[in-house]
Amino acid sequence: MTQGVVARGRAWVAAVPGIWLLVFFLLPFLVVAKLSLSEAAIARPPYLPLWEWDEDYLTITLNLGNYRYLIEDALYINAFLESLRIASVSALMCLLIGYPMAWCIARARPERRNVLLTLVILPFWTSFLLRVYAWIGLLKPNGVINNMLIGAGLIDQPLTLLQTDFAVILGIVYTYLPFLVLPLYANLVKLDGALFEAAEDLGAQPWQTFLTVTLPLSVPGMLAGCLLVFIPAVGEFVIPALLGGADTLMIGKVLWTEFFNNRDWPVASAVAMVMLVVLVLPIMLLRNAQNSSEELA
C-alpha cells in the first residue's frame, strides 16, 4: 500500500521534467523533423503539407531532397566544420583561462569563495547583447583599443580587430567563460585535500602534485565545462553576426540565410536536424562525464 503511494508519488515527480521535455523539446523537434521533409512554396505558411486526404486516399509526400541538397553543396559541410573549429578553439581558450580561475577560487578561503564566485557571475547582470555591443566599441577601427595603441605610438594604422574570426572567438570566450568556470570549480572544490597532503608527504613538488593528482581528477569537470561552452558555441548566431566578418561562415548564419533570405523553411529545418545530430555526440559525452563525476563524489 505505502509502497504503491511512494511509487505513484515518484512517478508524479518524474512526470514534471518528463512533460517539460515533451512539450519544449520533443514536440518542437518533431515539428522541425516534419518540416525538414516538406517542400518550400510561396504560401502561408511557406511550405507544402506533408499529407493530404483526398476522398479515401491518404497521400503522404516525403521530400528527402532537402538533405540531399545539404550534401551536394559543399557550403553546408564547410559551415559545419568551421563552426566546429571555432567552437573547439573557443572551448580550449576558455579552458586555458578558466582552469586557473576555477583552481584559485577552489583553493581560496571558504568565506572568500562566495565573493569570487559572485564576481564570475556578475557579468550576467548586464544584457548579453549589450556586452557584445560593448566589444564592438572596443574593437572597431575608431575604437578604444586602436585609439590607445595609436596614442601610445605603438601602431600608425588601426589594426583590423573587428569583423574577424579572432573577434568571434574572443566574444564566445568572453561570454561563455562562466559556463566553464562553474562546473570546473564544483569539481575542484570537492577534491579531497588529504590527497595533496599525501603527495607532498611522499616528496612530490607542487607541479608534480598538480600534474599527477589534481589534473587527472579534474578531467570530468574540464569535460563538462568544455562541453557547456562547445555546444552552444557551435550553433551561435548573435556573436558571429555582430563581431564576425562577412567571410565568417558558421552554421547559425547559414540557417538564418535559409530561413529568412531563401524563405526555405524545409532546408533550414534540415540544417537544424543535422546540427542536432552532430551535437548529440558531445551531449552524450557530457552525460558520461557527469555520471563518472557523480561516482567520484
Binding site: 518550400a40 512554396a41 510561396i42 553543396d73 559543399a74 557550403l75 564547410n78 562577412a246 567571410d247 565568417t248 561562415l249 547559414v254 540565410t257 533570405n261 531563401n262 524563405r263 526555405d264
Partner: peptide, 18 residues
C-alpha cells in the same frame, strides 16, 4: 524560388568565397 536560391547562393559565395 529557383532564382532566389541562385541569387542567395551567389551572394554567400561573394561574402564567404565559398
Amino acid at each position: 524560388a529557383r532564382q532566389d536560391r541562385n541569387v542567395t547562393r551567389l551572394w554567400t559565395k561573394v561574402k564567404t568565397g565559398q
